[in-house]
Amino acid sequence: AQVHVDGVTYDFDNPEEAEKFAREMAKRKGGTVEVKNDQWHVE
């Protein structure tokens, strides 16, 4: 699973880890999390 944050792509073998990371980053940035094509996007 991939997580996109500020133009940087992070690869995770485990989708749950990807989701956890995406939500944590969004919380830190005060942003939102979107899922597109099985990829997490932190805005």
Rank of each mutant, 00 (worst) to 15 (best):
A1W: 15
A1V: 12
A1Q: 11
A1S: 13
A1E: 03
A1Y: 15
A1D: 05
A1M: 13
Q2E: 05
Q2W: 08
Q2Y: 07
Q2G: 02
Q2I: 09
Q2M: 09
Q2F: 08
V3T: 01
V3M: 01
V3D: 00
V3W: 00
V3P: 00
V3R: 00
H4N: 07
H4F: 13
H4M: 10
H4E: 06
H4L: 12
H4T: 11
H4Y: 12
V5I: 12
V5E: 02
V5T: 03
V5P: 00
V5Q: 01
V5R: 02
D6Y: 08
D6K: 04
D6G: 09
D6L: 05
D6N: 09
D6R: 03
D6V: 03
D6M: 07
G7I: 02
G7T: 02
G7P: 01
G7K: 03
V8R: 11
V8Q: 09
V8S: 06
T9F: 07
T9L: 08
T9A: 07
T9G: 03
T9Q: 09
Y10E: 01
Y10V: 02
Y10R: 01
Y10P: 00
Y10D: 01
D11S: 14
D11T: 14
D11R: 13
D11M: 14
D11P: 08
D11G: 08
D11K: 13
F12G: 00
F12I: 01
F12W: 01
F12R: 00
F12T: 01
F12V: 01
D13E: 10
D13M: 09
D13W: 07
N14P: 00
N14W: 07
N14E: 08
N14H: 09
N14K: 09
N14I: 07
P15W: 13
P15Y: 10
P15V: 11
P15N: 11
P15Q: 10
P15G: 08
P15D: 10
P15E: 10
E16N: 07
E16H: 11
E16T: 09
E16L: 11
E16R: 10
E16A: 12
E17M: 06
E17L: 09
E17T: 09
E17I: 06
E17V: 06
E17Q: 09
E17N: 05
A18Q: 00
A18H: 00
A18V: 01
E19P: 00
E19V: 05
E19W: 06
E19L: 07
K20H: 10
K20Q: 12
K20I: 10
K20P: 00
K20N: 11
K20G: 06
K20D: 11
K20S: 11
F21R: 01
F21G: 00
F21A: 02
F21S: 00
F21E: 01
F21M: 01
F21D: 01
F21L: 01
F21Q: 01
A22L: 04
A22M: 02
A22C: 07
A22P: 00
A22H: 01
R23I: 12
R23N: 12
R23F: 13
R23M: 11
R23C: 14
R23L: 11
E24F: 06
E24A: 08
E24R: 05
E24Q: 06
E24H: 05
E24V: 04
M25V: 13
M25W: 11
M25H: 06
M25Y: 09
M25I: 12
A26P: 00
A26M: 03
A26V: 06
A26F: 01
A26K: 02
A26H: 03
A26R: 03
A26D: 04
A26W: 02
K27S: 10
K27E: 14
K27M: 11
R28Y: 13
R28K: 14
R28N: 11
R28L: 15
R28M: 15
R28A: 14
R28F: 13
R28W: 13
K29T: 15
K29I: 15
G30M: 03
G30A: 04
G30V: 03
G30T: 04
G30P: 05
G30N: 10
G31N: 04
G31M: 10
G31I: 04
G31W: 14
G31T: 09
G31V: 09
G31C: 14
G31P: 03
G31D: 06
T32G: 05
T32W: 15
T32M: 07
T32D: 05
T32F: 12
T32S: 09
T32L: 08
T32P: 02
T32K: 12
V33G: 03
V33K: 02
V33F: 07
V33M: 05
V33D: 03
V33R: 00
V33H: 04
V33T: 05
E34L: 14
E34A: 14
E34T: 15
E34G: 10
E34H: 15
E34N: 13
E34Q: 13
V35D: 03
V35H: 13
K36D: 08
K36A: 08
K36I: 14
K36L: 12
K36W: 11
K36S: 10
N37H: 09
N37V: 06
N37Y: 08
N37C: 12
N37G: 14
N37P: 03
D38T: 06
D38K: 09
D38G: 15
D38N: 15
D38W: 08
D38P: 04
D38Q: 11
D38L: 11
D38E: 10
Q39R: 09
Q39P: 03
Q39H: 11
Q39I: 15
Q39A: 12
Q39S: 10
Q39Y: 06
Q39V: 15
Q39M: 14
W40A: 04
W40F: 13
W40L: 07
W40S: 03
W40D: 03
W40E: 03
H41Q: 07
H41C: 14
H41A: 05
H41E: 05
V42L: 04
V42I: 09
V42S: 03
V42G: 04
V42D: 03
V42Y: 04
E43D: 10
E43F: 15
E43R: 15
E43W: 14
E43L: 15
